[in-house]
Design a protein around this nucleic acid. Structure first.
Length: 141
DNA sequence: GCCAACGTTGGC
DNA sequence: GCCAACGTTGGC
């Protein structure tokens, strides 16, 4: 099972918005970037990901699960763009900030650090475990 | 609010 | 196919 990271501006789509959707989840639509789209095409149902708030908060705030594999983005007729559906699983007891991530040598290769503008990213198992621990989870899900 | 990074578009 | 111009994102 693979791990991912989804970046969102909270003013557009926040963790609270995601939680409010419950188990029904929501399309991660609106991505118009080939690299991010290609990342989503690799996702499988049951994969987990981090939910990251860009802009003001700049922190990983929660964990989401992929509940539908890549399919056409319903917000456009342009067939180039696909997206997955995700649902909120649980918040991190303590958000992990970008500053903490940048300060941790284990996380220096993360796309979050290397490619700030990529909105959907892969996360390695080691990075996943490290951030879960930093976020206050006893055990990485 | 500014600016660096970087992706996209369009003219040639 | 190249590259300049332009637009957007996101950190500071």
């Amino acid at each position: 099972m693979s791990r991912w990271l989804f970046k969102s501006e909270p003013s557009t789509w926040s963790w609270d918005d995601q939680v409010a959707k419950g188990d029904a989840g929501e399309e991660w639509d609106g991505v118009r970037n080939y690299q991010a789209r290609n990342v989503m095409r690799e996702m499988k149902v049951g994969d987990l990901g981090f939910f990251y708030h860009s802009q003001d908060q700049k922190a990983v705030v929660g964990i989401v699960e992929v509940i539908a594999a890549s399919h056409p983005d319903s917000t456009t007729d342009d067939e180039r763009w696909d997206c997955v559906d995700i649902k909120a699983v649980r918040p991190l007891p303590q958000p992990v900030t970008l500053a903490e991530i940048k300060a941790d040598p284990r996380l220096s290769d993360m796309a979050l650090v290397r490619q700030a503008r990529l909105s959907v990213q892969p996360v390695t198992d080691a990075e996943w475990a490290a951030i879960c621990a930093m976020g206050g989870l006893d055990e990485a899900p």
